[in-house]
Amino acid sequence: MRSRHKRRRGSQLTDNFEARFDRLILLVGRLNYMWTNTESLLIHLIAGLTGADKNVAVIIFLTLNTTRARIDLVERLAKMEGRPANIRDPILEHTQRLSKLSGIRNKYNHCIYSFDQETGNPKTILMRIADRKTDIKLGREDTVDDNAIHDIEAVVAQLSVANRDIWRLIAKLGYPV
């Protein structure tokens, strides 16, 4: 009787681990979708700021292979001499907003996942080397608890709002769509 109870309990724990992991993976997928969709709006800002058509802006966007490089380009174009403040300032607001939101996205995209054996919570293991003065540190681990899940959900919601706001700015400025 005891061993059957242990098996059932072990099965429930496994099901619980899988449910938590499934929730995390679905949420990270949504985060990626929202991020990619919102980051692609930089194409329209590049087109408008350079006076290029959308196809040229797509080539520029795809040639720059990091979010940081794409945001840097848009910010530099917005800051060019002679750019009116009513164009520059709202663009910089949006790029700074995206930069702040990129931290969570980067964390969950540049890691591997494992499980805490005691709690069943998923854990992230950062795939980055941290150089110290005299040594290096590998694979910082963080537990994906309810607070982390809420943080991801908050970023997804903020990206949704940012997406709509950037679309409104693109329309207001008359940039190519």
Score class of each variant (00 low, 15 high):
12 Q>F: 08
29 G>S: 13
123 K>L: 10
14 T>W: 14
77 L>H: 04
58 V>S: 02
170 I>G: 00
37 N>W: 08
83 R>F: 04
23 R>M: 10
10 G>E: 14
118 E>I: 09
138 L>H: 07
102 S>H: 13
24 L>T: 06
96 Q>E: 15
25 I>H: 02
116 D>L: 04
174 G>A: 02
111 C>V: 15
120 G>Q: 03
80 M>K: 11
80 M>V: 13
61 F>Q: 00
166 I>V: 14
161 V>A: 08
83 R>N: 10
66 T>E: 01
60 I>P: 00
106 N>I: 05
34 M>F: 06
101 L>R: 03
77 L>A: 08
71 I>T: 11
116 D>I: 02
113 Y>V: 14
144 V>F: 10
124 T>Q: 03
63 T>C: 06
176 P>T: 07
23 R>Q: 14
176 P>A: 07
10 G>H: 08
35 W>E: 06
163 N>T: 06
19 A>W: 02
45 L>S: 01
87 I>M: 13
114 S>R: 10
131 D>M: 10
27 L>M: 14
177 V>C: 07
116 D>M: 01
140 R>Q: 11
122 P>F: 04
7 R>N: 12
126 L>K: 08
81 E>M: 03
155 V>H: 01
164 R>D: 13
162 A>Q: 05
2 R>Q: 12
94 H>F: 15
14 T>H: 14
6 K>W: 13
22 D>S: 13
44 H>A: 11
50 T>K: 00
127 M>P: 00
5 H>C: 06
128 R>G: 04
115 F>H: 09
88 R>N: 05
79 K>G: 09
171 A>V: 15
78 A>E: 05
26 L>D: 13
46 I>D: 04
22 D>F: 09
74 V>N: 03
104 I>C: 08
124 T>N: 02
87 I>R: 00
149 I>C: 02
154 A>P: 04
112 I>V: 14
119 T>G: 02
111 C>E: 07
93 E>A: 01
93 E>L: 10
109 N>F: 11
155 V>C: 09
1 M>N: 10
78 A>V: 12
25 I>G: 00
64 L>V: 08
148 A>G: 01
70 R>E: 13
110 H>R: 02
17 F>D: 13
101 L>N: 03
82 G>W: 06
22 D>E: 12
69 A>K: 10
63 T>Q: 09
17 F>E: 12
71 I>R: 03
99 S>K: 12
97 R>H: 08
145 D>I: 11
104 I>S: 01
80 M>R: 15
8 R>P: 01
63 T>H: 12
94 H>M: 09
66 T>V: 07
76 R>V: 05
173 L>I: 05
23 R>S: 14
66 T>G: 06
101 L>K: 00
25 I>K: 05
129 I>N: 05
165 D>F: 01
33 Y>S: 02
65 N>C: 08
99 S>D: 11
38 T>H: 05
78 A>S: 11
43 I>L: 05
5 H>L: 13
53 D>P: 01
124 T>M: 06
164 R>Q: 13
153 E>G: 07
58 V>Y: 09
68 R>N: 11
49 L>R: 01
